[in-house]
């Protein structure tokens, strides 16, 4: 694929990731922008990238960015997560979640590039609820296993699922016996109704138009 490169002594491919998931969590919804030297059929790009990527890294869709549509980063302000807590009784987790939601502020700590920082993990949380959906995105089987559904707004500093888990520890002493398994289910623009709009939606109309034009 004719990837564009930055200028300079050691050119880098022009790729930018919008709010990439942290190390150690799964994701069904990562978005990135790729600069190309010339227009290519997005369907072709999708197939070519998918072939080169590792098993488990699947390219689901590619669209042409519409001029003036704004960058991906502008279209993402919230993320939907699924948190599986193997070895934790759902009732115990539910209590912790209730305590978390009841608190006006939950201070947690994390190491950042600037050193150890303390910040509020509560305000950014739009939704945090127990779910009994049987489909575990990670495919893990463990009994018991509490499952939390979480929607977090994008703020600075970012509040990540592990910060919310730290929050559950802070407010209710919740200590999962094994590392929880976290999966991002979606990200995009959060509507007033609490739905997340796919950031590629804005390009969909134009994309199909340009696709047929190139054929």
């Amino acid at each position: 694929m004719p990837i564009a490169f930055s200028q300079g002594f050691s050119p880098h491919p022009k790729i930018s990731y919008a709010s990439a998931a942290p190390t150690g969590v799964g994701s069904e919804a990562e978005y990135l922008e790729i600069g190309l030297q010339r227009e290519v059929d997005p369907a072709e790009l999708k197939v070519a990238l998918d072939a080169a990527l590792s098993p488990g890294l699947d390219v689901l869709e590619a669209v042409l960015a519409e001029p003036g549509g704004g960058s991906l980063a502008d279209r993402i302000d919230a993320s939907h997560w699924r948190l599986e807590l193997p070895g934790v009784e759902p009732a115990v987790a539910a209590e912790a979640v209730a305590a978390f939601l009841a608190a006006p502020e939950v201070l947690v700590e994390r190491m950042t590039k600037q050193g150890r920082r303390s910040f509020d993990a509560r305000a950014a949380v739009f939704r945090c609820a127990m779910t009994d959906e049987p489909d575990l995105p990670s495919g893990a089987v463990a009994v018991p296993c509490a499952i939390i559904d979480l929607v977090v707004r994008q703020v600075i500093p970012a509040v990540r699922p592990d910060d919310v888990l730290s929050g559950l520890r802070v407010v209710a002493g919740l200590e999962p016996p094994v590392p929880p398994r976290v999966t991002r289910l979606a990200q995009g623009t959060l509507t007033a109704q609490g739905e997340i709009v796919d950031p590629l939606d804005a390009d969909h109309v134009g994309a199909s138009a340009s696709e047929s034009a190139s054929r």
């Binding site: 190390t23 150690g24 080169a52 590792s54 094994v178 590392p179």
Partner: peptide, 21 residues
């Protein structure tokens, strides 16, 4: 499955997952 549980607790976990081109 057993290894994955340990990966969040170690440095540079990506070196253990394979999947190279």
């Amino acid at each position: 499955p057993q290894l994955e549980q340990l990966l969040p607790r170690v440095s540079k976990p990506i070196q253990y997952v394979g999947g190279e081109l």
